[in-house]
Amino acid sequence: MSFAAETFFTIGQFADLHEINKKTLMWYDEIGLLKPAAVRENGYRYYTYQQSSTLETILMLRELQVSIREIQEFLKNRSAASLEMLLIEKGRELDHTITHLKKIKKMMSERQRDMSILREMDLSQMTVVDKVERHYLVTVDLSCGITLEKAIERLTAEAKGYQLRRLHDASYGSILPVEQLYQGNFSRYSALYMEVPGPIRKKGLHIQPKGSYLRAFCKGSWEHLPERYLDILSYAREQGLRLSGFAYEKGINEMVIDTLDEYITEIEIPVQLP
C-alpha cells in the first residue's frame, strides 16, 4: 500500500492506524514529542503517513520503559548509534526484569505447592520425598547468641544483595543440625535462612543439597516442635532411616492464618535410605 506525500490522516484515523488512543497523540503533541504535520483553522490535528515510523519508534521505546525525557533526547539526535546504545541499555534492564519475573514465578510455584499441601495434607503423616535440585540459602549464624530480632534484621539486609525486593519473594526459616537432634537439643538452632533463586556462584551461601528428605509437619507455635522431633526420630528408627546434615524448617501458611495456633511448620531432613 502506498500513500501520496500530501495524504493526511485525522487524529482519529492516525490513532486507529497505530491502535492507540487519540488522547495519547494529543498528549504527545502537548509535550512536544510528536507534533501533528498540520493544524487546521478549526483546531483539528492532521498527520502524514511518513510520521508513522516516528510514532512506532516512540511506542516501541515506551514499551521498553524508556522515559519521555530519554525519548525526547533521542529524537533530537536520531542516529543508528544512538538507537543502538539506547536499546543495549534497555536490553540490560529487560534482562534484569526477566530474571526477577522468573524468581517471582518460582516463588509462586512454591506457594502454590504449599497451598496444595495445606488442602490435602495429613499433618500426622511423614513421607520421604526427593528434592531434585539444590537450594541456595542466605544465612545468619545464631550460635553467637544474637537475638532473634537482630538476626532477622541482618538476614533481610543480607538478602537484599540478591535482588530480593520483599520478604514474600523468598522462602525463609531456620536450620537445626541433625547432631543436635540426636543429642536431644531441639532448640539449639545454628542459623536462620532465606532462600535465594539459584544457581548462584557466590561464597558464603549455605547449599541445601538435593536428594532424599524426610518431610514432616508441625501445627501450632514453635513450642510444639520438640515433641514433633521426638516423633520424627522414632519414625526414622522404625523405618531404618539415618538422618544427616540439617533439619530445615519453614512456615508454609503465614498468608492464610490469623493466629499461631494455626501455624504449620514444614520440616525437611536429608535421609540415608536403608
Rank of each mutant, 00 (worst) to 15 (best):
R154Q: 12
I152G: 01
L155M: 06
I146S: 05
I146R: 05
V128Y: 02
L142Q: 05
D141W: 15
E133H: 03
L148C: 07
V140E: 02
C144A: 13
V140G: 01
E153K: 13
D130Y: 11
L155K: 08
V138M: 02
V138A: 02
E153A: 13
L155S: 05
Y136D: 00
K131V: 08
L142F: 13
L142S: 08
T139G: 03
V132C: 09
K150L: 13
D130P: 01
I146H: 00
E149K: 07
V140A: 10
E149I: 12
V132K: 15
A151K: 01
L142Y: 12
D141L: 12
V138H: 02
R134P: 06
A151S: 10
E133D: 08
T156V: 08
K131E: 07
K131G: 01
L137Y: 01
H135L: 03
L155P: 09
T147D: 14
K150D: 12
A151E: 04
L148Q: 10
E149H: 14
Y136H: 03
D141P: 08
A151T: 07
E133F: 04
L148T: 12
V140N: 00
R134Q: 14
L137V: 01
Y136A: 02
L148G: 08
G145Q: 04
V129Y: 07
L142V: 13
C144T: 11
A157G: 01
T147R: 15
V138P: 02
S143K: 15
T156H: 03
L148R: 05
C144M: 11
R154D: 05
R154N: 03
K150R: 15
K131I: 10
E149F: 15
V138K: 01
V128G: 04
G145H: 15
R134A: 07
G145N: 06
E153C: 11
H135Y: 07
E149L: 14
L155A: 07
H135P: 02
V132W: 11
L142T: 10
C144W: 14
V128D: 00
D130M: 10
H135S: 06
G145M: 11
A151Q: 06
G145C: 09
K131F: 02
I146E: 05
A151L: 04
C144D: 15
V132A: 13
K131S: 08
I146N: 08
D130A: 09
L148K: 06
Y136C: 00
D130I: 10
V128C: 08
E133M: 04
I152F: 00
L142R: 04
D141F: 15
E133Q: 07
D141I: 14
V132D: 13
L137A: 04
R154H: 09
E133Y: 04
